[in-house]
Structure formats: structure tokens, C-alpha cells
Design a protein around this nucleic acid. Sequence first.
DNA 1: GCCGTTTTCGGCCCGACTGTTTTCAGTCG
Length: 580
Amino acid sequence: MAQVERRYTNRQLADLFEKIGSLLEIKGEVIYKILAYKKAAENLRAYPREAIEMLKEGKLQEIPGVGKAIAEKIEELYQTGELEFLQKLTKEIPLSLLELLQVTDLGPKKAFLFWKQAGISNLAELELAAQEGRLRGLPGMGEKSEAKIIAGIQALQRRTGRTPLGKAFQFYHELADYLQKVPGVIRVEPAGSLRRMRSTVGDLDILAAVENSQGVMDAFIRHPQVVRVMGHGEIKSSVEFDNNIHAQIWAHPPQRFGTALQYATGSKDHNVRLREIALKQGLSLSEHALTRSDGSEIFCANEEDVYATLGLAWIPPELREDRGEVQQALTGKMPQLLTSSDVVMELHCHTTWSDGTLTVLEMAEEAIKRGKKLLVITDHSGSLGIAGGLNIEDLKKQRKEIDAVQEKVGDRIRLLQGSEVEIHADGSLDFPDEVLADLDFVIASLHTSLRQPREKITERLLRAIANPNVDLIGHPTGRLLPDREGADLDMDVILQAAAANGTGLEINAHPSRLDLDDIYARRAAELGIPLAVNTDAHSASDFDLLNFGIGTARRGWVQPNQVLNAWGVDKFMSWLARER
DNA sequence: GCCGTTTTCGGCCCGACTGTTTTCAGTCG
């Protein structure tokens, strides 16, 4: 009988260990074992190489948080497709109990209680029991708790999951404008995953510096779009808005703003690291202050002071994920991360020749306005009919127009003719090689047949990467946030090929893409692959999306010298000449 | 269950808020 090739993605493994952690939590296992499983899950999600490949190389335990026991479980899964430990566990605690944990304010203890004492084993049974008033008699439960559970279940049904970064920022700015007007509010800042520029945001975290917290707390819960108040305290409140976004606010006096902002920015794991370091120095770190063992407090008005007091370099928020940044900061030096002012060229945009809204001239003027020194016009190739792609004849006409516009704008900006060329389902490109060779810059992108099996779609992209006329792969995985996953690519192989061929990979800045993501961007940069942060602008306002791409690049520890469009025109042009 | 310039065994962060409590447990971040 042929050996079945079993494949577990890091995400699947992570989901599995996450489940184990939660089941153990309900079971009442010691907290550190639970934390170990959850930490391993999180690290697997953030790991740029496939755990299964690491297993084959005997390097599983190089993955942080993966020790002997978890490594053995991954191996057992790979060998047998099953996990005895999990099977035993689900005989003790039904898997469906995990549904209950999705309800706000309902954790493992209550899930266990409801199951043991009321025979509730899934969400539907919980809802029924709550509606029939059968929960209020249980230990530690009352009418209010019961009502909260009903509200929590209803909120769960409304909930649309994580919010894409772009939408989250837009709404944050609306809230910030509103909060700034509240008397006594000195300063409002984004915190949490929003400030860390994660591609999607769970809850919107906001920090306010205030003289008196009561006013801003009251104003927050009375915002006209609030549909549910989950918490309303002296320094912290949380609400749900009518757009399904959940948000929370903290208020602290200005002299404590540094510790408060540091705390509210997270991530949780980053903060745990910092507190460990504080403890080693005889300090205790909280959102309020650093406290010496004699109880005296060190106030930090600025976040920099928090890190400095701990003997660390200030860590940019985008790096605060406990992915080695604290160890780096202990050396006193952080990498010089990419900033938006570094990106002086835009290598990916669309005009009225395909699905853009501006003419070549209008795009050029927009780019000049934003200080760009070079702009590549990259309209779609013909086969992407939906976007009005260009055929070979169109390309010739477009070249003439671009030349004419170049003459008009003079040396204010350098214009190049490129194309975003479709990669066909068989891996061939939409234009023949001689046409590609005539273009100044070629982006190859996947837009269709994204659900091909892994081997096929990987092979398809490899063909494009190997084509010497291709300079850049656009939004490599094709994912669409928040819900549509990218193609099932073997990223290990893709990155190796890009490195070997010197083909660039794009970090598409559009908030519905942010593709490459931070994990692969970091790996790509480490492998020496040239990256490009592009807005993929279809209109004037799209140029403003650059910051989201910058955020993603920074989360990937990307530095200016690793980014094509931060190189400056001369270096970029000589790279192009060498590549082709 | 993981991990190690204080440890291969004994540690593994800190506080706000809520509801049910007569002093605290559960949940969240």
C-alpha cells in the first residue's frame, strides 16, 4: 500500500494545538501547560518555514515554543494522520464545548460548569438554557450574568470577525476626532494591533491622556454609534459599535502616558517579555508605572522612557510581537526600518488604459505631488478582461502616450512603461517574451484559478519567477483580507526560487491585500530577495495607502536597502538593466 | 510543556472590571 503523503500547514497545526490548549483549560490543567500549547500555536502561525519541512530536516525544536512533547505530536500527526493525545482528550471534554469560549465573558471555568452541572455541550444548548433562565441558579451565576451571555451570543452572530487595517484606521480617526473634543482630553493615540499595524485588527484599542478620566469614559460609551456597552469603568471602557467594530479605551494622566501607551500597544507576549526584564532589575512594570521594590514609582511620560529605564533601545510598535525584538533591543540597537519617505518610486499603478480612473498624465502629476521620482505605468494585460487589459497593439499606443507625457512633465519625474501581466493557469504569461522584453518593467501576477492544488499553483508561479523578463511578482499569494485566503503556495520553494533568480517580490500596500504578509516579507528580506512596496494605485487617493504597505514591511523587519523603490532612480535603473 | 549570561529543575507578568460575593473568582487584554 502506498504511503499517503500527509500535509499539515503551520496554520492547521497551530489550530490544533490551540484547540488542545483550550480543552486543557476547560479540563482545569495547570496553566503553564496550557500556555505552552497556546504559545507553540502562536509561534507556528508566525513561522515562515513549514513545520513539516523542519520535521524532515530534524529541526522541529528550532521553532520557538516547540519542545520535545509538541515535536513528537507533530511527528505522530505526520506519520499516522492522528493524534492519540487529542482523541483521549476529546473523550473527556467534548470538542463542541470550545464553541462556548467564543462568547464574551465566558471562559473555561464557566464552560466546564455549564457542561457538568447543566449538561450544556454546545452553543445552541447554551442559548436555549439562557433563554429559559436555567443558568441563573448555577454557582456564581445570576440574572445579570445570564443576560450577558444572551447578549454575547447575539453579538457573536452579528460579528464579522477581524477588521481590515484600512477600515480600522478610518474608524479610529473618526473616534479620535470625537474624543479630542471632550473637555479634559489632552491627547488620543491608537494602541493595540492597530498601532502595531497588523493586517487585521480584532478590537480597536485607544489610549487617551486626560486630566480627569470620567468625562472621556462617559463620552466614549455615549458615542452615537454605540450599540452595546461591555464595560464602563474609571480608567477603562469597552463597547460595540453599529458597524460591528469592538473598541476599548484607556485613560491615564499625561505623566503616566508612556507606561500606559506601552501597555496598551502590546502585544501581550511582548509585554510579558518586558515585565520579565523589569523583574530581573528589581522593578515591576504595569500600565501605571515602573515600581521599585520599596514601592516607589518611576513615572514615564513617554514610551521611550519605559524602554530606556529597562536598558533597552526603543522598539518600534510594528516589531512588538515577541519575535526576537526584545533580545535585539538589549543590544541597544534596532534595525533602521523602512519609512514612507524612503519610498521615492511607485512601481505599480493603473490608468484609464485598463481599470484605473486617471490618465497617464494625471497619474504622473499625482505622483509628482507626492514627491515620487519615478513612476511605472503597469496596466493589466489583455486576458484579464474584467479589468480592460491591454493587447499588444494597445501597448504600442500607450508607449507613445507615455513618451509624450514624459516630455510634458520633463525631469520632474521619470516615467516607465510596464505591465501587470497575467500568469495563465498553465504558468505561461499573457504576452510573448519579445513583447515583455520591450517593456521597461514587468510585474507578473496571479488573479485567476487561485484554488489550484498546491503543486500546480506553485509550479505555475515558479515558471513566472524563472522568466528573465519578469522583474517582480505582484501580490504573490493573491489573498484578500479579511476572509479570502491566498493560493496554497509552497512558500519555501517560491522564496528560494525568487532568491536564486533575483526576481523581486511585492508587498502590495492595499489594505485588502498586504501581500506578501509580514512573516514572508521578513523571510524574503533575510534571503536577499529584492522587495517592492507598491500601492497598486487605481486612483489619486490610492497613493495614500502606502502607509499600510510600509507598516507590513516594518513588521517584517524590512530595511530601506532591501526595497527596490527605496533605492533611488539610478540604482534602480542599473538593477533593471542588469536583470534583463 | 518550555526553557536557561542567576536554573537541566524550578520557575514561568500585571491589573481593570464585573457580578456574585461578604472577600473573591472569572474573564480579558
